[in-house]
Amino acid sequence: MTRILDVQELVAGYEPGLSIVKGASIHADEGEIVVILGPNGAGKSSLIKAIAGLVPVTGGQVLLDGVPITATPAHLMVRRGLAFVPQTENIFPLLTVQENLAVAGGILPRATVPARIDEMFGMFPDLARQRRLLAGSLSGGQRQMLAVARALIVHPRVLMLDEPSAGLSPKFVEMVFARLGEIRRAGLTIVLVEQNARAALAIGDRAYVLAEGREAHEGPAATLWNDPVIAELYLGHRKAS
């Protein structure tokens, strides 16, 4: 299997001398869904923001398809094939749904953008119906869909999502995760940061548990869910069995 994303001993932080990500190593192979779990404040968001070029990296490296992309300016990351959906404020509220997609399509050849937007609308029919509405007026679940569509429009190799289920009703959580499953079947590699361990591990192939800025455990998603120590320590649920 080809290793698409390889993060080695990454060190990153918001202020000089204060590392939040402290030597984290994770990787994702082609077509995999990799889940990153961990308690609040473990540095999950910081880790994927650092991978995406949004938090200054002070050590380690990130390889995409074997090519180092460490410290590439954030706006070039999507051109390299790395798309990112942030945890909060992941759409432009005062642009319409269609404009949100168009603005992200800016890196594609101009002539192909309208067709690509239509493809996205085909994939997310809910959004198609609301294409002329301001994105800020969408419901939480639809916003999340828009954020995902916006990330997908550029044909990324890797899609990184930060807690896409946060604040959503169970129905929407199910919908979002079903969509992610479909997307993966289309061949995309997904890195998924989640608090909602049950839903994430259900679609994930492999998972990491992050604690204090580095990975503390790694394993197949199914076994991680059943590991009582991890369950109690990090996932906040107790197995009944």
């Binding site: 706006h75 990351m77 992941n90 603005v103």
Partner: peptide, 9 residues
């Protein structure tokens, strides 16, 4: 920040 994420220079 989001503008950079979506590839705006």
């Amino acid at each position: 920040a989001l503008a950079r994420v979506v590839g705006i220079d």
